[in-house]
């Protein structure tokens, strides 16, 4: 079998392969920075150490916060409930993203966006809900 214009084709293929795999070579050896959500807002730091607890345990909040927020929304808007009783601590919380969650987690950029950006998820919470004011140092 004879390959017409073999040189050009092979060079072209090589160039293509080099470009297509460039992102992989470029990032070889570089560790992808893990998201590190920060919990160091003034409201949280003020609390005594043992009281620094979220509505539900950390592991639960990490995986289920979107479900929780969805349920909160239905409970407030549709069923007229105002308060959530924590299944972990039996403490009462106002069911409100804007007024309750963000009261402690006033660092949306470092708390919400850190992971959401990493995971490339774009929740539309902040299209309507007003995020707390943050100074732009990050």
């Amino acid at each position: 079998m004879k390959l017409y214009d073999g040189g050009k084709i092979l060079i072209g293929l090589l160039v293509f392969a080099a470009i297509a795999t460039f992102p992989f070579y470029y990032h070889i050896g570089k560790v992808n920075a893990k998201p590190e959500p920060k919990l160091d807002t003034p409201a949280i730091l003020q609390m005594p150490e043992q009281e620094r607890k979220c509505v539900e345990p950390k592991a639960f909040m990490r995986t289920e916060h979107m479900q929780l927020l969805n349920n909160w929304r239905d409970a407030v808007v549709r069923d007229g409930y105002g308060q959530y009783v924590s299944t972990a601590t039996a403490k009462h919380y106002n069911m409100s993203l804007q007024n309750e969650c963000m009261r402690c987690h006033s660092n949306k950029k470092k708390f919400c966006d850190e992971c959401h950006n990493y995971m490339a998820v774009k929740p539309y919470c902040w299209d309507c809900h007003i995020a707390p004011k943050e100074d732009d140092k990050s």
């Binding site: 909160w72 069923d79 007229g80 409930y81 009462h92």
Partner: peptide, 10 residues
């Protein structure tokens, strides 16, 4: 979804 007693009216 959540039901009473996990939620309460204010």
């Amino acid at each position: 979804g959540i039901n009473p007693p996990e939620v309460e009216p204010n």
